[in-house]
Design a protein around this nucleic acid. Structure first.
Length: 363
DNA sequence: AACTCGGGGTC
DNA sequence: GACCCAGAGTT
C-alpha cells in the first residue's frame, strides 16, 4: 500500500503532467464547465463528448442561460449523445441552482450531491476539479487501475467492491492535489491500463502493480458476465397529410427517450403483422385510424438493454384527429422542418431516409 | 442488489 | 457479436 502510495506521487503525477491529453474542459475550469463536462462524460468517451461540449457551451454559455432555456432546446443539444435523463436532470439542476443558490454553483459537497443527475462520482469530480476539495473519484477507469494494482479478486460490480475500492482511492489520494490525482488515475486507465491490451511497458506504476507481476493483468477487474439483451421488432408510421406534412409525437417524460420526438409506433405483438402493429399503435397512441401505404426503411438499432428492428411504413389517416393519448404531445411538420426538434438516433435515421431525393415519393 | 437508461468505439 | 465507456436513478 505505501509502495503504491509513494509511486503515485513519484511516478504517476509526473507521468500525467507529461502525457495528459488536451481537453476543452481542462482550460477555464469554472464550476459550470466542469459540471457540464462531467455530466456528458458519464458512461461516454472523451472523443464522443468533445464536440457536444463545444456546441453546448456556445448555445448555453452560462448557468443562467441554461436555466432559462426550454427542456426541448436542451434535449436538442444532447441529441445523439444518449442517456437523455442526463440532459433532463442537468436542466432541472440549473433551475434549482438559479432559484435556490442565486445562480451560483454550490460548493458544499452535501448540497452538490442533492442536485439531480449528480451521484458519488460526479460530486467528487466537481469537488476536486472545481473547488480543490480532497475527494477521490471512482469510475470505470479507476476501478480497473486499482483492481490491477492490487490484484483485487472481488466482483467489481458488487457494492462491497465499490466501497472497498473507494476507500482505497481515498487512501491513495494526494491531498491538496486531488484534481490532478483523479485525472491522472482516469487518464492512466483510458490510455495505458486498457481493458484488453494494457500497455504495461509504458505504465509508470508497473513496478508496484500486482496485476502486472502476476503476468495476467487482464484477469482484473473481476466481473460477473452480463445477461444477453432481448430483441424487439417495432413498427413506426410516417403519417402524411394533404399538405405533405408529417405527424410526429413526443415521448412522455418518464419513458425511455423521454421528451424526444418520434415517428409514432410501437412493439409488435405475437400474432400480428408489422402493418397491423402500426395500425394498432397509432389508434392507442393518438386515437386515429390509419392505413399503411408503402414501405420506407428498416432501421436496426442496439440499445444498452435490448436490440431493435424498426420497420417504417408510410401511412394516411382514414378517420379521426390526433390526440395525445399515450404521448406528451404531437405536431405536423414539413420534412424540411423535422430537424428543429430532438429525436433519438433511430428516428434520425428515418429522417435521413425521408430527406433523400424522392424520399417522400412512396407516401 | 438488480434493473433501467443511449450511443459509439474497439476487439 | 460482446465489452466498455470520467454513472445515476428507481424499485
Amino acid at each position: 500500500m505505501n509502495k503504491i502510495k509513494r509511486a503515485v506521487k513519484a511516478r504517476l503525477l509526473p507521468w500525467f503532467a507529461a502525457n495528459k491529453r488536451s481537453m476543452p474542459w481542462r482550460s477555464n475550469r469554472t464550476p459550470y464547465r466542469v459540471w457540464i463536462s462531467e455530466l456528458m462524460l458519464q458512461q461516454t468517451r472523451v472523443d464522443q463528448a468533445t464536440p457536444y461540449f463545444h456546441r453546448f457551451m456556445k448555445r448555453f454559455p452560462s448557468l443562467k442561460s441554461l436555466a432559462a432555456a426550454s427542456q426541448e432546446d436542451v434535449l436538442k443539444m444532447w441529441e445523439g449523445l444518449g442517456y437523455y435523463s442526463r440532459a433532463r436532470n442537468l436542466h432541472k439542476a440549473a433551475q434549482i441552482i438559479a432559484a435556490d443558490y442565486s445562480g451560483r454553483f454550490p460548493r458544499d459537497p452535501a448540497e452538490i450531491l442533492k442536485l439531480p443527475g449528480i451521484g458519488g462520482y460526479t460530486v467528487a469530480a466537481i469537488g476536486s476539479l472545481a473547488f480543490n476539495l480532497d475527494m477521490a473519484v471512482l469510475d470505470g477507469n479507476v476501478i480497473r487501475v486499482l483492481s490491477r494494482l492490487t490484484a483485487y479478486t472481488t466482483d467489481t460490480r458488487t457494492t462491497t467492491a465499490k466501497k472497498e475500492l473507494q476507500q482505497l482511492a481515498d487512501e491513495l489520494l494526494v491531498k491538496g492535489d486531488a484534481g490532478n490525482f483523479n485525472e491522472a488515475m482516469m487518464e492512466l486507465g483510458a490510455t495505458v491500463c486498457l481493458p484488453k491490451n494494457p500497455q504495461c511497458g509504458e505504465c509508470p506504476m508497473s513496478k508496484v502493480c500486482l496485476g502486472h507481476e502476476s503476468g495476467r493483468p487482464t484477469d482484473y477487474p473481476v466481473k460477473a458476465p452480463k445477461k444477453k439483451t432481448p430483441h424487439m421488432v417495432v413498427g413506426a408510421a410516417v403519417v402524411t397529410n394533404r399538405k405533405g406534412e408529417v405527424l410526429i409525437a413526443q415521448r412522455r417524460e418518464k419513458d425511455m427517450l423521454g421528451g424526444l420526438w418520434e415517428f409514432p409506433g410501437g412493439k409488435q405483438e405475437t400474432g400480428e403483422t408489422i402493418q397491423q402493429c402500426i395500425v394498432r399503435e397509432l389508434k392507442e397512441e393518438l386515437g386515429i385510424n390509419i392505413e399503411t401505404c408503402g414501405f420506407l426503411v428498416t432501421v436496426k438499432h442496439a440499445y444498452s438493454h435490448f436490440t431493435m428492428d424498426l420497420h417504417t411504413y408510410f401511412a394516411k389517416i382514414k378517420s379521426g384527429r390526433p390526440r395525445p393519448l399515450e404521448c406528451q404531445n404531437f405536431q405536423w411538420l414539413k420534412i424540411s422542418d423535422l430537424r428543429k426538434v430532438p429525436y433519438s438516433k433511430a428516428d434520425l435515421n428515418i429522417i435521413a431516409e425521408l430527406e433523400k431525393p424522392n424520399g417522400l415519393k412512396k407516401g
